[in-house]
C-alpha cells in the first residue's frame, strides 16, 4: 500500500471527527445506541437503524444458495470476504477498484464487481459465484472449447459476467457479446475466443439449465 498522504502537498482536509466535533455531537445527541459507535446518534436513533462496527460483525451471506456465516469488519468487501474469510477464491482481486471485472459475481441475478461491494451490504441477497457452477457448465465449457482463456486469471470473472449477460440476452451475436462483456478486461488477449464462447454457450443453454 502506498500512502496517498503527501506531507508536502495539500490534501483534502480530513473534516472528520475532530475531538471538538465529537464532544459537541455528544452534547446534542442521545447516544443511546451502543458504546462502540464513533458517531453521535443525532436523530435519537430511530428504531431499526442499528449501528454496527467498526469492529468485527457477525454476518450471514447467502452464497450459491447456502447461508454462510462469517465475522468481519464492515469495511470488508464482498470480494475480500470470499477470498480472505471463506476461501472462495474463484473471484480474483486485480484492480480492486471496479474497473477490470475479475471479481465479478452475480447479486440477485445481476453481474456486479464484488471488490466494490461491502460484504455486510450483500447480506440478504442472492450471491452467485463461480464455485456454485458445475465445472462443466455451458459457459465454462464453451470457454474451453474456444480457448477463451490463457493464464485464466480473468476467466472466472468473464464466466460470471457471461452468465449474467446470457440471462438477459439469450440469443446474442458476437457484437452483443462485445457490448455485454465490456466490463471485464483480459491481459493475455483472449477476446477472440471469448466472443465465440459466449455465443456458443447461449446455444448450449437453450431450454436447459443455465447453471
Amino acid at each position: 500500500m502506498s500512502s496517498k498522504k503527501d506531507p508536502e502537498l495539500p490534501v483534502q482536509p480530513k473534516s472528520g471527527f475532530s475531538r471538538r466535533g465529537f464532544i459537541r455531537g455528544v452534547g446534542i445527541g442521545s447516544g443511546v445506541l451502543g458504546t462502540t459507535g464513533l458517531l453521535p446518534k443525532e436523530a435519537a436513533a430511530a428504531p431499526g437503524a442499528a449501528v454496527v462496527g467498526p469492529g468485527p460483525v457477525a454476518m450471514t451471506l447467502t452464497i450459491n444458495g447456502k447461508p454462510v456465516n462469517l465475522t468481519a469488519e464492515p469495511r470488508v468487501t464482498l470480494l475480500d470476504a470470499m477470498r480472505n474469510y471463506l476461501d472462495l477464491t474463484g473471484a480474483k482481486r486485480v484492480c480492486d477498484r471496479g474497473t477490470c471485472g475479475a471479481c465479478t459475481v452475480l447479486i440477485n441475478g445481476k453481474s456486479v464487481y464484488s471488490c466494490t461491494t461491502l460484504a455486510i451490504d450483500a447480506q440478504g441477497k442472492k450471491i452467485e459465484t463461480i464455485e456454485g457452477l458445475p465445472v462443466n457448465n455451458p459457459v465454462s465449457a464453451a470457454f474451453v472449447n474456444h480457448d477463451g482463456q490463457q493464464c485464466g486469471y480473468c476467466t472466472p470473472g468473464f464466466v460470471m459476467a457471461a452468465h449474467g449477460f446470457l440471462r438477459e440476452h439469450p440469443n446474442p451475436t458476437e457484437a452483443d457479446v462485445e457490448h455485454g462483456l465490456c466490463g471485464n478486461l483480459c491481459r493475455c488477449g483472449t477476446y477472440m475466443g471469448v466472443r465465440k464462447a459466449v455465443v456458443e454457450a447461449a446455444k448450449g443453454m437453450k431450454g436447459g439449465s443455465n447453471g
Partner: peptide, 12 residues
C-alpha cells in the same frame, strides 16, 4: 483443448 481449461474456466 488446453488440459487445464476446465479448472481455470470453472474457477477451481
Amino acid at each position: 483443448q488446453r488440459l487445464d481449461g476446465p479448472q481455470k474456466s470453472s474457477g477451481r
